[in-house]
Write a protein that binds this DNA or RNA. Structure first.
Lengths: 215, 215
DNA sequence: GCATAAAATTGACGCGGATCAAGAAAAGCA
DNA sequence: TGCTTTTCTTGATCCGCGTCAATTTTATGC
């Protein structure tokens, strides 16, 4: 079946047994959406978590003053909204597709069933712990790094240390993802350009080795 | 046995069965330490997680420049260093007791065994998700709130909205916990004093209702 | 008890980045 | 294709908070 193939490619739960993976493929529902689609909103009730197969999704919260704070940009192969499954009935963040996406939806009762299997359970818990570690690192970054360092960390995390990067999100979104305003990002890019570290033209970023060094 | 009683009082894994709790009590080792003791350091290898029964523990990371960034202050009833159990062999943070503490140490293999029990597993996963939600909120706070709001959020989280609070940590530590310098906190407290919102004398904070309102 | 260290306060100063406003460029749409 | 809307850029200004340095206060040890 098609779902099963995509699961294989996407690298969800790599360590799990064939049986668990088949079971997973049986219960999850494919979801395709164009860009700028809201999958769910903060404080909305729900009972499904998602696996992202293709595209990128932004998870953000709204501050009391109405600022949009990006918590994480989800990449293919990652799981999101898993918090809904045990702890609370309400989504803690808003999820919006930044690009066209393909995701899988997984219901609470189905997941609970899958967790009986030790391999699956271990993979699931390991995934949660990985995310915890990510959030921990992010807190450290936000309190001790400037915008340039945060940009570097973001690009590294999302695309790796590459010379050319196809960015499928716009500058406003990227600014938000690194906890800055579009104006600040614009000025930073201008500066990096002058220093011959990084250029950004028509959705393509080109970096020089210098960019990855200093910091 | 004594360990079992403390486990009951501390409220670890409230939903779990009598059998699971007995099993937990059997495998965990009590640890008592004076204040300012380092339990483990960032990047140090280890294979145990902890349950805190009494006292407070600060989890922090060191930034490349040597700044100490507090990730979370652990309270009685909370679990920490659980990341070590599945994902990596190295502690991602440093843990230092802020007060005298009583904690329980739980080894990897024992925990994996306990996770076979559904009740225990659900409680454990729920705990992980609670922490994830906490970290998510913290990121939002750090990027969108000023120091005064962060102080309020910290006191609320740690002690609730009370008129009188016994603070068992010093101002330097508190400053660090809310992502600020001692100087900034000092000035903030002075200002709150002038506005008759909050006083801090000899480890006792007194707040007026005003303090909890504005923000 | 004094001596030394650590914690807390206070002032002066500067910088990173937010905010506001206005214009240029690009994208969406009829 | 022209019109509208959003995104991006650029400049001017402002402010929160960090940094540095100098005291003062409190804690700690002999």
């Amino acid at each position: 079946m098609k779902v099963r193939q995509i699961l294989d490619q996407a690298g969800f739960f790599e360590g799990i047994s064939r049986e668990s993976k088949d079971a997973l493929a049986r219960v999850c529902m494919p979801i395709e959406r164009p860009k700028h689609t809201t999958l769910f909103r903060e404080a909305e009730p729900g009972e499904a978590m998602f696996l992202l197969a293709r595209g990128r999704i932004s998870l953000h919260k709204l501050s009391p003053e109405g600022r949009e704070v990006v918590i994480k940009v989800i990449q293919p192969g990652e799981v999101f909204a898993e918090v809904i499954l045990f702890e609370k009935k309400y989504y803690p963040v808003t999820a919006v597709s930044l690009t066209e996406i393909l995701a899988f939806k997984l219901l609470r009762r189905d997941l609970k069933h899958l967790l009986r299997e030790e391999d699956f359970r271990n993979d699931f818990i390991a995934m949660l712990l990985r995310k915890q570690r990510y959030l921990t690192d992010k807190i450290q970054q936000l309190t001790s790094q400037d915008v340039e360092q945060r940009l570097r960390a973001f690009l590294l995390e999302q695309y790796g240390e590459r010379e050319q990067i196809q960015v499928e999100i716009n500058k406003k979104q990227l600014a938000s993802a690194i906890g800055a305003t579009p104006e600040t990002l614009s000025r930073l890019l201008q500066d990096l350009n002058r220093r011959k570290c990084l250029t950004w033209k028509q959705g393509v970023i080109k970096t020089s080795p210098d960019f990855w060094l200093d910091g």
